[in-house]
């Protein structure tokens, strides 16, 4: 089994990109692959606790469930600060981290990298 790193750059309510990322991650985990996900730019909304879309899939809830099953989710701190998202506001099991340390490590550990962005 391999390691898949997904780099997501769209916000959770911008389009369906985050839904695609979550579905791809889930399918890969179901097959026994290790999956890591890095949220960059608008995709930092991925880890914001308290997401409650009324008519759309709740990406936050999916992320919460999947981190408990082994998905590693990290988002860019600089991008969070730019958008007023601070430590303590993230979904339990996710991390506000660093492009240099976390994404570089995730990419280095990956067998495949998929970019989900517009």
């Amino acid at each position: 089994m391999g390691t898949l790193c997904i780099q997501l750059r769209s916000g959770t309510m911008m389009n369906m990109d985050s839904n695609v990322a979550v579905k791809l991650a889930k399918a890969a985990m179901d097959k026994g692959h290790k999956v890591t996900m890095f949220g960059y730019g608008e995709a930092v909304t991925l880890i914001k606790d308290g997401q409650d879309p009324k008519r759309f899939p709740n990406v936050g809830k999916e992320i919460s469930k999947m981190t408990a099953e082994g998905l590693e989710v990290v988002v860019c701190e600089t991008c969070c600060v730019a958008r007023g998202i601070h430590r303590g506001e993230e979904i339990r099991g996710t991390k506000i981290g660093s492009l240099t340390n976390d994404f570089s490590r995730m990419a280095a550990e990956a067998d495949r990298l998929v970019t989900i962005a517009r």
């Binding site: 579905k23 791809l24 889930k26």
Partner: peptide, 11 residues
């Protein structure tokens, strides 16, 4: 295709 097949293509 479906998502499991997409994973096989990618991985």
């Amino acid at each position: 295709i479906d998502y499991p097949r997409a994973v096989d293509l990618i991985m």
